[in-house]
Design a protein around this nucleic acid. Structure first.
Lengths: 211, 211, 211, 211
DNA sequence: TATGAATGAGCGTTCATTCAT
DNA sequence: CATGAATGAACGCTCATTCAT
């Protein structure tokens, strides 16, 4: 009896796993196509053809075209945000600049490994509708808030000059977005010196243009 | 005969002018609606209803929905770019920083007077299709090039620290875009201190974070 | 100038009329098909193919499949109800039984000339959804109310025996519906003695079974 | 061998019984849902969810959605028809009117106990397709035939006035259907005086409107 | 026998574009 | 030149049925 139950559980678990795998596979296909063509130009047909599934099967895994894109966005947000760490201050903490360096490197690495991410976040997800735009702004808003608090901390430590922390946070975020856009959306993937890019971003952020 | 010809010419010219006026009126209406709802959510119906013209008339003036948006974009590019001046150097030129200040003020003023411009450029025109995206990037590319040459000039004058001029130009452009987005797309139009915003942008650009 | 205006008005009026004609034609086609196959089994494709119009043209005239059926129903209700007259009492009025006779004859005549009407009202419009059902019951409810008031009047005139007027009204309505269903839905159109049918309905209604 | 066979038979019989029980359970569930939402609005999903069985299991017991509804209809027909008795004439028989009374009471009682029956028969099963409609008409046709023969018998006994027996049978059937529809489909179940309703139906049927 | 993932035909609707008047 | 009725390709989505496990 116990065995039977175990067996049944095993079957259920295996089915669950297979389901999860298929979902993930469809998501991956959809991510690629959405990154390639954008939300509106991607049809359910495109996705199911590329995923090799039937029309109905798609709706077995996702509620709607909107829903799969939404899920995709959330996934990208999570992936990216996991690479960003709040800057620690304290006796045992690394120097702030090194922490910045590490975060920038991690983010760049992640983007380099998931080239669809910047394309979707900076291009294909923009301007779809008010709800998606709100979602994007929420995401960027979280990063902006992190940056703002870092700037404020820096001011308290007398490292950062007096300035409007929010404005400056937006400038940093904007600089990063523009560089990422240039590096991963405009540029071909080859011959990208991400280290150089990160260093330039940080120098500019810290020192600006002046000598 | 000559008289007749003159008369005809006059008639033609008058017709031409009327045609031009109508075109412009439709363009203005379309700009407002595209800014409001975005490219995909705007239908030809929306435009002709707001413009008070018939469906067929629209196609008399514009080849397609794409075409009118394209023309609109070009117009926005022209409007904006007219506010940006190459920084002059020379004995009679104003100090570079003052020139930057002036350009930033002019651009902000223009955007404030044409609130649809930033909304379209930063949101509604993004990710429509590859061709539009290329067009946008061309525009931003021109600004980037201006900035790059300004940075190089600054370096020659020993005002600007050694850095990758292109990267830094992208950072400046990104900072500006992000602030504009914050100020004109996210924010409500009231109570916007554009002077403060411009000064923060320039300080950050010149001095970065550090004391 | 006046002529020109007249001309333009004439054109508009002509267009309006053409539009009305086409609408009516599509409605007629739809009525036939709905009567034949019922609401659910009728597709927009069926209608546009039979009407010889394009898919989009259909939606130029009708908001949706539901809407055209709804309009059709209203039309049937109006047509039928126009044949039913409240029984008049007074010195100059015809005898009530003759008035009943006249109404029954008019209704039967109308149904005979519009064979789709009973089929739709008694079969194809039943059970589609709650909203349509409510509409149908409203229609029958109006007739029921008319009958109830006629029965009450008859009681006041001492022509009708004491009874629950509402219940009896329902019986009369049910009798009529069943005969109509038999005559126009089950039966082939030929060899239908509508006079006989009407007379039997009225005798039964007035006298019941007993000698 | 015989023993073994018996055992096997027992197992088979038990299985058969279990199968029968499950079928019946699913049918009961389906009856409820069909009565509630109608044929088209009821999905296989609704049924299996309510029955707690898997999708495939449903098709193990029933060939199709049509088939289960068909079976349901047959069941309702059988249930109802069992309550209707041919009116007996003879020295030992009860008076015809009492027999009518008894049948009417039995039918009303059955309907009151199975509220889905009238709802399905009068609403949800109407107009689905030609085959179902034919089936319904066959059922009503049998009742109509019974009534017709009762009327003819009444005429032979000189109880019933001369009339077209078939037409009058239809009137009686229609009256009954309309009252049942009013009582069990339109009305809320509470406060329904079925005795009154039956008496009014019979009085009307026998005496009509006149004093 | 029981399961439920997979299927795909079919549906109602939209909307940019055309063209006869 | 101006009109607006007509077009039809394309879309997202549903759901009864099948079949490998």
């Amino acid at each position: 009896m116990a065995r039977y139950g175990e067996k049944a559980d095993g079957r259920v678990a295996r089915a669950q796993k297979a389901r999860e795998q298929r979902r993930t596979a469809v998501l991956a296909v959809a991510r690629r196509i959405f990154a390639d063509k954008g939300y509106h130009a991607t049809s359910i047909d495109d996705i199911i053809a590329a995923a090799g599934i039937a029309r109905g099967t798609f709706y077995l895994y996702f509620e709607s075209k909107r829903a799969i894109f939404d899920e995709l966005l959330d996934e990208l947000f999570t992936t990216l945000q996991a690479q960003v760490r709040r800057i620690e201050v304290g006796p045992n903490a690394l120097p702030p600049v090194e922490q910045m360096n590490a975060t920038v490197d991690r983010v760049m690495q992640t983007l380099a490994e998931n080239r669809e991410v910047p394309r979707i976040l900076l291009r294909e997800a923009v301007g779809i509708d008010d709800e998606f735009d709100a979602k994007l702004e929420q995401f960027y808003g979280r990063i902006e808030a992190l940056l703002t608090s870092a700037v404020l901390t820096g001011q308290q430590m007398n490292l950062v000059r007096p300035c409007d922390a929010g404005m400056v946070a937006r400038c940093i975020l904007g600089s990063a977005k523009e560089l990422v856009h240039w590096a991963f959306v405009k540029q071909e993937p080859d011959a990208l010196d991400l280290g150089h890019l990160g260093r330039e971003l940080i120098s500019f952020t810290l020192k600006g243009l002046f000598q």
